[in-house]
């Protein structure tokens, strides 16, 4: 473990006062001083998309388009006690540049980069982690590094693989949400039973939160 900061292992707030705010992915990485595992990556990705999709729907209901948030780093992703994930909303930031509107494609790309960096945490620049093909494919798709014959789909960087549903009849909602729903589908398809995705991924994040708190408490006691 990182011994550079003896007074606060991993820089995590150990007073259990995080309440609804949870633990940031950055805090989790620092505390463990190692990357997240693949299952956690799938889960965090899924839960982030759920959170962003909900935010998109709220903004859409207020007549707003675009995204005020592009995920700048692991500090912007907070895992809550119940396993839900909060993606920090730039709306309250004093940094006015974060109030710019971003497309869903840009937000998905930023999420893919954050997830990859969490998997790559602590590795040297000359090293590369060997990811399972499905997870590498997911990140490829999210960050749009897949070669696709120059025909970049405008449907948020993803092919329209799903049937039209009621939501798809609203053009603005399609623009905002299709990319996220396709990421959710890819994450669900990773499971033996895709219909279990909401419960499963929330449980993985809930365990990630609990284990991190336990480790933090343990390190505090040792200190």
């Amino acid at each position: 473990k990182d011994k550079s900061d003896d007074t606060n292992p991993g820089g995590v707030n150990m007073d259990c006062g995080d309440g609804e705010e949870g633990l940031s992915l950055e805090e989790i990485l620092k505390l463990y001083n190692q990357p997240i595992n693949e299952e956690q990556a799938w889960a965090v990705c899924y839960q982030c998309c759920e959170s962003l999709l909900q935010g998109s729907r709220r903004r859409h209901s207020r007549g707003a388009g675009g995204y005020a948030r592009r995920i700048a780093g692991a500090a912007d992703v907070r895992v809550r006690r119940d396993g839900t994930v909060l993606v920090q909303d730039g709306q309250d930031s004093s940094d006015k540049s974060r109030l710019s509107m971003f497309t869903a494609t840009e937000v998905i790309e930023s999420l893919g980069i954050v997830i990859y960096k969490a998997l790559d945490y602590g590795l040297k620049e000359t090293e590369e982690r060997e990811l399972s093909p499905p997870l590498e494919h997911l990140i490829d798709r999210m960050t749009n590094v897949v070669e696709n014959d120059g025909d970049v789909s405008r449907d948020e960087g993803f092919e329209a693989t799903e049937e039209e549903d009621e939501e798809d009849k609203e053009p603005q909602e399609v623009f905002n949400s299709r990319g996220f729903r396709n990421v959710l589908k890819l994450c669900a398809a990773h499971l033996p039973s895709p219909s279990d995705a909401p419960d499963h991924y929330q449980a993985v994040c809930r365990a990630l939160y609990a284990e991190t708190r336990d480790l933090g408490t343990f390190l505090e006691k040792i200190k």
Partner: peptide, 23 residues
Amino acid sequence: KEKASYNVRPKHDSGIKAKLSMK
């Protein structure tokens, strides 16, 4: 805590890390 299990290889020019580092 148990260490995460993963394999590490030298960074490859055509690998995902190289592609993402250019973004």
